[in-house]
């Protein structure tokens, strides 16, 4: 079931086209990463989805079945650098945010406590926000985005500004949150996306250049490439040279003890090679069946633009 449907979304700032026509949909319950290099238009896109920027053209439909027009009630949003009122305490801010989202007074008390302890701020809840560290502010940002149990959580670079420990905490938190709600977050750290996401959208220069589930993208961009390296022994080198003429090899690039073989089908080629190597007792040094990483895919699709 699609929760958010975006059609041909565009945004111009003067003559500059920040976003040039995005079409995608978010499935309910998924965790989706919006990837892209700096300046790709990720923040602009998220701000339009959050209703902070008016799109120049295009359509955003939230929860088609229920026909919600002002969907801000169902949205949790965390900007790149969230700022709070320093003179409030963490608890006061969360209560304030909950009130603005239209929650009932009784509910607010319970939820505030629950959310603050979820993000690990229960001990600092009564302290002024001006005394919070960067990581604590980020966690407070999560708390304010979660307080009203949104259907969709939009996070703009939730981890890039944090130190490794803060990053770890946020990733773990995200992993918990994604059990409960749909999450769309932008990042330029591929590793984070790989760790927690189901689906990926890749943006470059204001366009969507690749989208799909993590596994399907891996499959699609997998290079059918096998790299074999052997000990520098005569028999082994001969065997390596003989690989050129195997039927499953399309192209072979053999440099002394290393062979890079482009193959028809990765699975069967791998089996075949392994079997032969064992049968002939070839002293293997390295054997790589080429699944190119997400990073290779990213570099490839982004630089193709």
């Amino acid at each position: 079931m699609s929760l958010l449907q975006v059609t041909d979304l565009k945004k111009n700032f003067g003559k500059e086209n920040a976003v040039r026509g995005l079409t995608f949909q978010l499935e309910q319950g998924k965790c989706v990463a919006l990837l892209g290099p700096n300046g790709a238009g990720k923040t602009t896109t998220l701000r339009m989805l959050a209703g902070l920027l008016e799109p120049s053209s295009g359509e955003i439909i939230f929860d088609e079945q229920q026909g919600v027009t002002d969907y801000r009630k169902w949205l949790g949003y965390l900007p790149q650098n969230p700022t709070f009122y320093g003179w409030m305490s963490g608890q006061e801010y969360i209560r304030f945010a909950a009130g603005l989202s239209g929650m009932e007074q009784k509910e607010i008390g319970k939820r505030t406590e629950a959310v603050l302890s979820k993000v690990g701020l229960q001990d600092a809840a009564k302290r002024r926000i001006s005394g919070y560290s960067g990581g604590m502010k980020q966690r407070l940002g999560f708390a304010q985005a979660l307080i009203h149990e949104p259907k969709l959580l939009i996070l703009d670079e939730p981890v890039s500004a944090l130190d490794p420990i803060g990053r770890r905490e946020v990733i773990n938190l995200l992993r918990e949150i994604r059990q409960e709600t749909t999450v769309l977050f932008s990042t330029h750290v591929l590793h984070d996306a790989e760790e927690i996401c189901d689906d990926i959208l890749v943006m470059a220069k204001g366009r969507l250049v690749e989208q799909g589930s993590l596994s399907s993208l891996r499959e699609k961009h997998r290079q059918p490439l096998v790299i074999v390296q052997v000990e520098r022994e005569r028999e082994a080198l001969l065997w390596l040279d003989s690989l050129k003429s195997k039927p499953y090899v399309i192209q072979a690039d053999i440099k002394a003890d290393i062979a890079e073989l482009t193959v028809h089908d990765l699975g069967s080629a791998r089996d075949e090679l392994m079997r032969e190597a064992t049968e002939n007792r070839i002293p293997l040094v390295r054997f790589e069946a080429g699944s190119s990483s997400l990073e290779d895919m990213f570099v490839k699709v982004v630089s193709a633009q």
Binding site: L52, P79, N81, P82, A97
Partner: peptide, 13 residues
């Protein structure tokens, strides 16, 4: 300019 408005305006107010 401080950025607090951004967090307010995403709420239904």
């Amino acid at each position: 300019h401080g950025g607090t408005a951004e967090l307010i305006m995403v709420r239904p107010i």
